[in-house]
């Protein structure tokens, strides 16, 4: 259960899925016996479209799937991977579960925060990095393991972390 990444209620504009996203959604719907079953995949489309899922984006998902917005909200807040707030360009996910913990994950996480000047669940002022702690990501044999967006970086150490952050900082 997600405890910390609840959405801050924000005033936003009404959202509509762009045509290419709607085309993807139509295709997804053909694979399931009910519209509701497509909720998780359609939430992924929403996140890929807007980078995060605002209250308005959640309502748009509810609209296209004929679901109550409250149901969509309940599902959204249950899973940890849907971003309920805008996140930086690079979402740094550091695993601190047992095998990574035994191999120095905490100091890696601390170094990450110190170098970027942010705490957990925070984003740098330039909008480039967001730092989160995650549970076991099945990289235990290459501990400590971390992900940046959808890519694994493992095994990590202080030197590799510095090089990675330097490289990502230089990117436009």
């Amino acid at each position: 259960m997600s405890h910390t990444r609840y959405r801050v209620m924000e005033a936003g504009e009404a959202r509509r899925f762009p045509p290419e996203a709607m085309a993807r959604i139509e295709k997804i719907l053909t694979r399931y016996p009910t519209k509701q079953a497509a909720l998780l995949p359609v939430l992924w489309v929403a996140q890929e479209t807007w980078g995060w899922i605002s209250k308005e984006a959640g309502e748009e998902v509810a609209r296209v799937l004929d679901l109550p917005p409250s149901h969509v909200d309940g599902v959204l807040t249950f899973y940890t991977m849907y971003n309920l707030r805008p996140v930086g360009k690079h979402l740094l996910q550091v695993c601190t579960s047992i095998s990574c913990h035994l191999n120095g994950a905490e100091s890696l996480l601390e170094r990450c925060g110190k170098r970027l000047g942010i705490g957990l669940e925070e984003t740098t002022a330039d909008g480039k990095f967001t730092l989160v702690e995650v549970e076991c990501i099945a990289g235990c044999d290459r501990a400590p393991s971390m992900m940046v967006n959808d890519q694994y970086f493992e095994p990590m150490d202080a030197g590799k972390l510095d090089a990675l952050l330097d490289r990502l900082s230089r990117e436009a």
């Binding site: 259960m1 997600s2 694979r31 399931y32 998780l40 995949p41 939430l43 992924w44 249950f78 899973y79 940890t80 991977m81 849907y82 995650v134 549970e135």
Partner: peptide, 12 residues
């Protein structure tokens, strides 16, 4: 037979 890949979203 049809097979569909369904991605979860972070929940043990």
């Amino acid at each position: 037979l049809d097979i569909t890949v369904h991605r979860g979203a972070g929940a043990y």
